[in-house]
């Protein structure tokens, strides 16, 4: 910061002041409790470039930029087995105050599919920071221009809808939506989000479930039409697209982007992280991250986050069990 120059703007000054006050508040309590006193190990249970990886890197940047975490932070991608490897490692750090990890849909679905030693309820919840939601979209060749027309058509003639994987939020969200909207459909699972998009463009599918970041380029180019959104509020790029909740057909599930500590983490660390994350979610850098990745902003802390995870898990398990996809 160049104080010798006179050009510090009012806005810059305001940010500076806010940072100083909030920063003091946070570090003030932290110093009293001698936390953090050691380097931080962030476990990312997926390869670089994924949703968990980007969130962890943004978070680490903010924690260092605002001097919130005064010790070094290392980000470690421990990928493999749909998260089993990374969260398996994290589970073994029980009691540690200096390990954190991020959540995604897989932290709920992977234990439903394989014998993992850990379960989501083993970890110590800190905060839900955002949700990754989905768009129901059709090709621009489709006869349907609105969700109402789509539902009406679907009731008469069950559509073929593509998504990513089966034991995944894509399928669960559209299944819950269809149940509330009163139509049946054939679901075609793909290995990745781009795969289902290719299939839609080739005319093989009637509709797909996909992430807004993946779809919005196609929507802007007039190749696809977004009909409905699973999240609580539609991202700016998809303005005018109704949320499923506004239609009274809220699927109520999402991919939770949250922060967790290992099992039996010290209470002092949990309190520090909850307090710190309350500050982080209000920073402009975090807001920028939410906007550019088209996430839905929603924050829940501690027990509220825990309850959210339990509800999500119940909805996942019920839907998958009803479809015969898990035991």
């Amino acid at each position: 910061m160049s104080f010798h120059k006179t050009g510090l703007t009012g806005r810059g000054m305001a940010t500076l002041a806010a940072t100083a006050i909030l920063g003091f508040a946070v570090t003030g309590t932290a110093q009293a409790q001698d936390y953090p006193a050691q380097p931080l190990d962030m476990t990312v249970a997926f390869a670089p470039g994924g949703g968990n990886d980007i969130m962890s890197r943004v978070l680490a940047d903010i924690l260092q930029k605002y001097d919130l975490y005064t010790q070094p932070i290392s980000i470690n991608n421990r990928s493999g087995g749909s998260g089993a490897v990374g969260w398996g490692y994290f589970y073994n750090q029980a009691g540690s105050a200096y390990d954190v990890s991020s959540t995604s849909g897989s932290i709920i679905t992977t234990p439903l599919q394989a014998d993992t030693p850990w379960h989501i309820t083993d970890f110590t919840p800190v905060a839900l920071l955002a949700t990754d939601d989905l768009v129901l979209a059709v090709s621009s060749d489709s006869p349907y221009t609105t969700i109402e027309e789509f539902i009406e058509g679907a009731r008469e003639n069950p559509p073929v809808i593509g998504g990513t994987g089966t034991v995944n939020v894509d399928f669960i969200a559209i299944a819950l939506f269809a149940e509330k909207a009163g139509f049946e459909f054939d679901y075609v699972p793909f290995n990745s989000r781009p795969d289902s998009q290719t299939a839609l463009l080739s005319g093989a599918l009637d509709a797909l479930m996909n992430s807004p970041g993946q779809v919005v380029g196609m929507v802007e180019a007039g190749e696809m039409r977004a009909l409905a959104y699973t999240g609580g509020s539609t991202p700016a790029e998809l303005e005018g697209v109704p949320t499923m909740a506004s239609l009274g057909m809220d699927p109520g599930v999402s991919m939770p982007r949250g922060l967790i500590l290992p099992p039996d983490a010290p209470q002092e660390a949990v309190d520090w992280w909850i307090e710190t994350m309350r500050f982080v979610v209000d920073t402009p850098e975090w807001q920028q991250y939410i906007a550019s990745n088209m996430l839905t902003e929603i924050t829940l802390f501690g027990d509220d986050f825990n309850e959210y995870i339990l509800n999500t898990e119940a909805a996942f398990a019920n839907t998958l069990r009803a479809g015969g996809y898990i035991d």
Partner: peptide
């Protein structure tokens, strides 16, 4: 690995590393 269509694991013997 996991059967994409049914979501069921095939020949993984419960191993999480083989579900992929």
């Amino acid at each position: 690995g996991v059967d994409l269509e049914t979501g069921r694991s095939r020949y993984t013997f419960g191993s999480a590393e083989l579900i992929g």
